[in-house]
Design a protein around this nucleic acid. Structure first.
Lengths: 224, 224
DNA sequence: ACTATGCTCGTACGCTGTACGATTGTCAAG
DNA sequence: CTTGACAATCGTACAGCGTACGAGCATAGT
């Protein structure tokens, strides 16, 4: 291999941009994005802090690359099914991925240039909508709507302080309700009680809104 | 005034939690959330850095308070109109506010305990939905759906590298299209061209999805 | 007059991202 | 075999961060 070629290949012992970025994602998953420092990352890779800068120009670029790794995990809309099923698949996958990497949501605000996986994803989704018969501008609208829902849901889910229905029940009693005097917040009390009684499942909640949106979009395509 | 009372009142010269938090919001608006440091904030207030800690227990608490200030700016759903108009008003207001404070989106991920303005807002929205005839759990669904859309839209809007249709046109030519070889990204090219031709207005884009969602929710309320 | 309390802030500590330059290992040309 | 170029590693240093600690000050209550 010529020395001039970029070494994308990671020899077992050596570093590589791949290895650096992937380990950074792992670290952020484990410790949160605030726990991700260049020194700690280097430590996790058994290297000196400054060595990382041979693979990444700056921490900003590292964060960009991390976002793109996350996008790579999201399933593309399958081509062989109807558009609603395809979009549901990719949306559900996106929610799962973003729930697995909650830090990614917050990072997206400040990062303005989309990575290659992001672009590929966007292209595939747009293709799916166009082939389903949505006119160009309508496909753009649908894209915005669906992405807004997915990201917004993930954002809200990430800021929930509980992960399971049981934790919700516990926290409702101990933390939430004491903060909500029933005379000032009658409707929130009602909702909280109903939610605890009915159980809470973010995946179900997500599907509800998603299917509503998909159904609402259906009549907007020209079924050619 | 007894010294034991909390001084919420800001004498013209002195500090107060209000003044600290409001100035922090201004600073974040101006310089981004990364430019907001305790020392710089103190400087902007003409005080020493450590003085801030008499009004705020930590930077985390400051960020929480900033988020709540943002929530205070969002219009509550008016009570005298039909539910769709009311929800549209508050959603449009929310988008405007979040566009004015783009840093707020990213902050929401890590902040788990809602402030008083947040709670009041949530209560008012839930009240509006319940009074419109949505059953309890359906109101929760609607809440999740609408908030997801609003936050997600704001998130995407904040990560756009342009603010006006003109800037979009400029950047499309100079930055985006060169990144998008037409054989690899045919649909994105098509969309970009159509978008530049049609002009781009985030407010209109927002309304499109919003009205679609509102209409889709309409049949789910029991009109009593 | 004395004490308590509210408020301000200087200093210091451990952390951050990273600029700079020294060091080593590898490989091509002479 | 030597030499020079270059890729990769990393030690050191610097400015800036959040904030613990405690000293200094003004005012209020006794």
């Amino acid at each position: 291999m010529s020395a001039r070629e970029q070494r994308q290949v990671a020899s077992d012992t050596g570093l590589s941009k791949q290895r650096v970025v992937v380990e950074a994602v792992r670290l952020a998953d484990r410790e949160g994005v605030d726990g991700l420092s260049m020194r700690r990352l280097a430590g996790a890779l058994g290297a000196g802090a400054m060595s990382l800068y041979h693979y990444v120009a700056s921490k900003e670029e590292l964060l960009d690359a991390m976002i793109d790794v996350v996008f790579e995990e999201i399933e593309l809309p399958p081509e062989e099914t109807d558009w609603q099923s395809a979009m549901r698949r990719r949306a559900v996958s996106a929610r799962q991925v973003l729930a697995r990497h909650p830090w990614a949501n917050g990072l997206m605000v400040s990062r303005t240039s989309p990575g290659p996986a992001n672009l590929r994803h966007h292209e595939a989704v747009t293709a799916c909508l166009r082939r389903a018969g949505f006119p160009v501008l309508m496909a753009t609208h649908a894209n915005w709507l669906l992405d807004s829902y997915v990201y917004g849901f993930a954002l809200q889910e990430a800021s929930l302080p509980f992960d399971t229905a049981d934790e919700l029940a516990d926290m409702a009693e101990d933390v939430f309700l004491p903060q909500l005097p029933p005379d000032e917040f009658p409707y929130l009390n009602e909702s909280a009680a109903a939610l605890v009684a009915a159980g809470y499942d973010p995946a179900e909640e997500f599907i509800f809104g998603l299917d509503l949106v998909l159904a609402a979009l259906e009549p907007l395509r020209a079924s050619a």
